[in-house]
């Protein structure tokens, strides 16, 4: 039961992060290392607004997500877009960006651990396991978002363009899809998802300036397992890894510190055995 709940929550979080990361990689071939740093910024914004300034928690979540999205778009315009076609440069720039965010948070909020209050308190017990209402709320909201995202991608014209662009930029261009505009919109969606994940996760986690690193690694493992650029793959792989981690922690309690290495092990195995991942497209050289 514990594995189930924890696996579901971690899995759905990872799915949100990984899908956002996959989207912008798919559409514009941008590997955004700072993706989870945006997630951290959103969590800290909520802490600042709701705990320090006493703003209504729901309102602060909204403000945090919007602010992080705007910041993400500005970063895209001024930092990423000019070097978009240079993969190495994008990697370095986004790593640097994540570090900058980390240091800014460290300077502003110090390295102390911070927490954000639950939106709703209380819990119920299922099979002897305590389940907090907050956990259920977070899970529900994340699930709803995943469904909305799925609808956006599968049922709208924008979604069709995003998926076409992710598969074959050149042909998408021929169909009249504007690459830079789509990349910009996708970056907005991607960062908004990262910010949103940070916002809903904030009450369930401990905030510190290094909190972006662990999810980054796990998210990369998710993307590798699911297949680079495949949205369906990210979704499935996120739950696989979410459950695996929960199972490891539960089955070998003393081995809880092994959590992080599970993701890395899976990532290495996938790269060795099936580099294109579960649903990956084995990338064809253009032309």
């Amino acid at each position: 039961m514990n594995i189930l709940i924890s696996g579901l929550i971690t899995g759905s979080m990872l799915a949100l992060l990984a899908i956002g990361f996959s989207l912008i990689f798919g559409v514009a071939r941008i590997i955004n290392i700072a993706h989870t740093a945006f997630y951290m910024l959103a969590a800290y914004s909520i802490y600042y607004l709701s705990v320090r300034s006493g703003v209504n928690p729901l309102l602060s979540m909204l403000v945090a997500v919007v602010a992080v999205t705007v910041l993400g778009l500005l970063v895209y315009l001024f930092l990423i877009d000019p070097i978009r076609e240079h993969e190495g440069a994008v990697l370095i720039a986004t790593i640097a960006l994540a570090m900058v965010f980390q240091e800014v948070v460290l300077l502003t909020f110090t390295g102390d651990y911070r927490t954000v209050d639950f939106l709703i308190t209380g819990f119920f017990t299922v099979g002897g396991v305590k389940v907090f209402y907050q956990q259920m709320l977070t899970f529900g909201v994340v699930l709803l978002t995943l469904v909305a995202l799925w609808l956006l991608l599968m049922k709208t014209k924008l979604g069709l363009a995003i998926r076409s662009m992710a598969e074959d930029r050149e042909v998408a261009n021929l169909m009249g899809m504007n690459e830079s505009r789509l990349a910009m919109i996708t970056m907005g969606i991607s960062v908004a998802l990262a910010g949103f994940t940070g916002a809903v996760l904030a009450p369930l986690t401990v905030l510190n300036p290094y909190m972006w690193m662990e999810p980054l690694i796990i998210m990369m493992a998710v993307v590798v397992l699911g297949g680079m650029g495949s949205i369906k793959g990210s979704f499935v792989a996120a739950f696989i890894l979410g459950f695996t981690e929960a199972a490891v922690v539960f089955l070998i309690p003393k081995g809880a510190f092994l959590r992080g290495s599970v993701a890395l092990t899976i990532m290495i195995l996938v790269l060795l055995i099936r580099p294109e991942g579960l649903f990956g497209v084995a990338f064809e050289e253009e032309r």
Binding site: K157, L160, A161, R163, S164, E167, D168, E170, V171, A172, M175, M177, S230, V281
Partner: peptide
Amino acid sequence: RPFRELTVSENLWA
């Protein structure tokens, strides 16, 4: 070069 992950009708809509 069809969009291989898309269905036939989605390709046409694209």
